[in-house]
């Protein structure tokens, strides 16, 4: 090969190496997942705070808080929430929670799964967001309430 051709070849190799290097750098930066502090923090805190706030709030059933109503629902369902005595505590909890979650979690674009259950048994109350699926990362908020039949779990899972 002539000297000039050798030089041009060397130059082309340098260009090639530089391009490949830049490609790697760009690929690394683009593919690196951005950290999402807020989502992890707020979803976890949201589940816990939501459950906590709900339990201490008045349910709209004879001025009784949700915590007491849930205990009644888990135990003997003695509390009736309307004047014609047809709406049980469990039924009222379902309606009220559905209303609250529609105006909060669903409005914020969050999926959720709300369950009230004794461990190892089917839930007495089970509410899901819209399409029923909450397959993303779940951030749970679990509270435990004592009842005469054992400890009842009140669990709210939030997902994106």
């Amino acid at each position: 090969m002539r000297k000039g051709q050798t030089e041009v070849l060397g130059f082309a190799m340098v260009m090639l190496l530089v391009s490949v290097g830049m490609l790697f750098i760009v690929g690394f930066i683009i593919l690196r997942e951005p950290s999402d502090i807020k989502r992890v923090f707020t979803d976890k805190q949201l589940a816990v705070n939501m459950n906590d706030a709900l339990l201490s709030s008045t349910s709209g059933c004879k001025g009784i808080e949700f915590e007491r109503l849930i205990i009644d629902c888990a135990q003997y369902q003695e509390i009736l929430c309307d004047t014609s005595n047809t709406i049980s505590s469990c039924s009222h909890i379902e309606t009220a929670m559905r209303d609250i979650f529609t105006n909060t979690l669903e409005k914020w674009g969050k999926g959720y799964k709300y369950q009230i259950y004794f461990e190892g048994m089917d839930p007495m109350i089970h509410l899901n967001s819209g399409d029923g699926a909450c397959n993303g990362d779940l951030e749970p908020g679990i509270f435990y309430l004592p009842t005469t039949k054992g400890t009842v779990f009140v669990r709210l899972d939030i997902c994106e």
Binding site: T42, N49, D52, A53, S57, E65, I100
Partner: peptide, 22 residues
């Protein structure tokens, strides 16, 4: 705008009642 919703219990000291709030 970055929005953070915080569920809270809203205490009415006069009616002695907590309502759910955000």
């Amino acid at each position: 705008t970055s929005v953070t919703p915080l569920p809270v219990a809203v205490w009415n000291p006069n009616l002695r009642r907590h309502n759910f709030g955000v």
